[in-house]
Nucleic acid binder design. Structure first.
Lengths: 244, 244
DNA sequence: TCTCTTTATGGTCCTGTTGACTATAAAGAG
DNA sequence: CTCTTTATAGTCAACAGGACCATAAAGAGA
């Protein structure tokens, strides 16, 4: 990117740029990820992250949005959370050619069904974890792990969890998001105190109430707040070891 | 990355892949960044982040390490902190051609002097901030801002600050890192209590002591600890607004 | 209808963390 | 010798957060 002669030297190296998407949702109280089944070699028959090429006239973000719409079947994905995770560029990561892939994490509310994109044999929401669909094709195990680490950490210090919820949600539903992603149970009363007490995290909808799980007292409804950063953060319980 | 015919279609599009580096250090108690002066159009005479092409047989990480060694003049950069920030891929970000750039943030202890790389008119450590060297070439203002945001946030919940320090340092020097990056003063006694009380952040070197600023009581020496994540984090003072 | 279960929500108690502050130690400057 | 500077120990009060209890309000099942 510095000198003209360098452009002559490297400009036409066969670099392909793709995007890979780790699309998460909460389904039945558990974290799920959208995967596609590969129809062709290499890795035919294995599961992989959805993705595709970045076209010459679009950014990686545009390509990711396009792919997300394609895979989820939604016409408008502008309201969904879509964020870049990192870029994978090991020379041997695709046996066919030199492919640099920009990975994204997407968070969506529970959707009716997965749709197989045009370039995949099948698509499905599968529970996240060390499950039977592993290993994924290419370096997608690592990409998926990195994407999960990112969202798990961001739940602590951002209002990201609301991206998993519909526009109006109860605090019980929001708590289930944290519990599903972190794999830990949270005390409902303490969770409520913290969430309601944090300015800008959620916004109460006056008078509105709805049943959460078909049983129990109807819960008040909330909307996502405007705060992006949480100070202090909503720490998850003993992830690796407290200080003392 | 899915189907063979897609490779035929897109593989030879003129995508160039580069790395751009935001190299930070603490100098005279202030955060500095390594910049190079462009010798050629476009943006000739303006400051830019150091960087260069990713070669066909290397990853973006390898390219970043190579560039870091080149710009700092160090033979071995394996001990330095170098981390991917994000990837910039807007179609128009380089007026000459389609360039996708993977940005990195590097943290180094104070180094003797900057060295102009082969492809730059000059190189210098300049104080970070809204200074006279702005605007930078290309979209480097945004890249530099994103890299700064990343390290500022990571100081809170990781032991990253030790990457700015030499192998043996005093707590006063470590505190200056936080103060320089955050632009806020920290209470020395409280800082010490927190840092020493956090398992794995720093490790005392028994018996060793050294003067910090030429004056005052000699301070005990510490080494970087093994902890990467801090629980609970070392929060910086009132960044945008406390909860209550 | 009555009771049990379930979920929501408000409150209390206790402990650990943290900011503000004071005091003392140990060096150089003048 | 005194003042300034930095390091380091300690105290105190406010606050946040985990554990826990109590009550409200719904459906399920007898």
């Amino acid at each position: 990117m510095r000198e003209s002669q360098e452009y002559d030297k490297y400009a036409h190296e066969p670099f392909a740029v793709t995007v890979d998407l780790a699309v998460f949702t909460i389904r039945d109280g558990a974290l799920h990820v959208l995967l596609v089944e590969r129809g062709q070699e290499p890795y035919a028959g294995q599961w992989a992250l959805p993705g595709g090429f970045v076209l010459p006239d679009e950014s990686a973000e545009s390509a990711a949005q396009r792919e997300l719409a394609e895979e989820t079947g939604l016409a408008d994905v502008s309201g969904l959370h879509l964020e870049q995770v990192r870029t994978y560029s090991d020379p041997g990561r695709d046996p066919r050619m030199r492919v640099v892939s920009v990975a994204f994490a997407a968070l969506v509310p529970d959707l009716p069904e997965a749709r197989a994109g045009g370039d995949a044999a099948g698509a499905a929401w599968l529970p996240y974890g060390p499950a039977a669909y592993r290993p994924l094709a290419f370096d997608h195990d690592r990409i998926l792990g990195d994407a999960y680490d990112r969202i798990r950490a961001k739940l602590e210090y951002t209002g990201l969890a609301t991206a998993f919820c519909p526009p109006e949600f109860t605090l019980g539903e929001l708590r289930q998001v944290y519990e599903a992603v972190w794999g830990a149970e949270l005390d409902p009363a303490n969770f409520r105190r913290k969430v309601v007490g944090t300015a800008g995290l959620v916004e109460a909808i006056p008078g509105a109430a709805r049943l959460t799980g078909g049983r129990g007292k109807p819960a008040a409804l909330f909307r996502a707040g405007t705060a992006t950063a949480l100070h202090p953060p909503l720490l998850r319980p003993t992830p690796e070891g407290p200080s003392s």
